[in-house]
């Protein structure tokens, strides 16, 4: 394994660790930080009412996670496609 590859695996491992750590060792409900921000706004100015509604709100949290997964898949697919192309080009050049 080349030095570069080793670095890549270390970087990936680091990310996995950083994600897994809180899931394993932290007890929390893993609520989103901006929902908490909304609560704080209510606390700071109780009279404030949001004056606009989202144009489209996913019907349930399942649908929402579907859309988030769709976003991730779209991006990851593009990245994979492009690197696939580059990978093949580099192989041909050799």
């Amino acid at each position: 394994m080349s030095k570069g590859q080793k670095t890549n695996w270390l970087l990936l491992g680091g990310v996995v660790l950083l994600v897994a750590w809180p899931l394993l060792f932290v007890k929390g409900d893993f609520e989103g930080a901006d929902a908490q921000a909304g609560e704080l706004v209510k606390e700071l100015s109780p009279d404030y009412t949001p004056w606009a509604e989202p144009v489209f709100e996913p019907a349930s949290s399942e649908i929402e996670s579907l859309l988030f997964a769709f976003q991730a898949a779209l991006g990851a697919g593009t990245i994979g496609f492009i690197f696939g192309g580059y990978h093949e080009r580099r192989r041909q050049q050799r």
Binding site: G32, Q36, F68, Q71, G75, T78
Partner: peptide, 24 residues
Amino acid sequence: LALAGAFAFVLSSLKIPSVTGSCS
């Protein structure tokens, strides 16, 4: 350019759990 855009697309869709017990 598409790659840079796609990278931002993916990363901002990932709500990752953090040490405080909430996600961002």
